[in-house]
């Protein structure tokens, strides 16, 4: 084989299009969401406006919760109850195959865009710590499924008002949010593998083949629902927060 180096081109890229535009939405959305999540976690207030519970605080497990889902942790826990559960869905997103593409490009510049030179001089990918940790994604998927079940329960409770069963704008907001979160969770690449992707001979695994086909169809839109569900989580919390603070009045539809 000849020398490993290619043509000595005069720039890091010969691309003429504004490739840097591709990463700006990722920086804005992921950066904005991270800052908003930090604010929500540490403010530790206004996350429940009856009958709506913010997805950042669900399931609420600490005795000090404004709306207790499961009393698993006693009064000794004085920090934000969001810290008890949020690591699971955030870990699911942080190790998600789609988000990995987005943040490796936008924040690590490895590469910043296709055919644009990497910023890091040395590169080991996901072969070493800390990125070797990405391999635990399927465990975050299992945990995310549990969280999604609780969020469905919250969405059902959002129909239960003090005066009886009804529908408010918040009910619809929470319903839309859990639908998007479910689409995101069950379109995940690990889910696709666990459901049937691991099988070679589908003729001997009919049910897993049908499941794999269904998840594969969802998986084609995984990137889109990743963004949509992340935005919907933040907006759902914002809506409930503003109602809890008395800034917004939740309108009853039914």
């Amino acid at each position: 084989m000849m020398a490993d180096t290619g043509a000595a081109l005069p720039a890091a890229t010969l691309r003429r299009d504004p490739w840097w535009l591709e990463i700006l939405p990722t920086i804005a959305l992921l950066g904005g969401f991270t800052l908003y999540a930090l604010y929500v976690i540490f403010v530790n207030n206004h996350y429940y406006a009856e009958p709506y519970l913010s997805p950042f605080y669900s399931p609420c497990l600490a005795a000090q919760c404004q709306h207790l889902t499961l009393p698993l942790v006693g009064r000794w826990w004085t920090l934000s109850p969001a810290l008890l559960v949020l690591w699971a869905p955030l870990g699911f997103r942080a190790t998600c195959y789609y988000y990995r593409k987005a943040y490796y490009r936008a924040f690590f510049w490895a590469p910043p865009a296709c055919a644009v030179r990497d910023l890091p001089k040395a590169y080991a990918g996901e072969t070493r710590f800390p990125f070797l940790f990405q391999n635990v994604h399927r465990y975050f998927f299992y945990l995310a499924v549990i969280v999604v079940l609780f969020l469905w329960w919250d969405a059902l409770l959002a129909f239960r008002f003090p005066q009886g069963v009804g529908v408010g704008v918040g009910t619809l907001v929470m319903l839309a949010n859990i639908l998007l979160l479910s689409a995101y969770t069950f379109s995940c690449h690990s889910c696709r593998h666990v459901c049937g992707g691991h099988v070679d001979a589908f003729s001997r695994a009919g049910l897993r083949h049908r499941l794999w086909e269904a998840v594969s169809r969802l998986n084609e839109r995984h990137g889109a629902v990743a963004w949509a569900s992340m935005i919907s989580v933040a907006l759902t919390d914002l809506y409930i927060r503003l109602v809890a603070m008395g800034v917004l009045h939740d309108i009853r539809i039914l």
Partner: peptide, 29 residues
């Protein structure tokens, strides 16, 4: 493990093969 699934291979494939989603990620799994 070196692949960090930034999907450029899929973007340039003239045959439209979903290299990352259908080959690399399933192999990683």
């Amino acid at each position: 493990g070196f692949c960090n699934i930034t999907k450029c291979c899929t973007e340039v494939c003239p045959e439209g093969i979903h290299i990352t989603d259908n080959a690399i990620i399933p192999l990683k799994e």
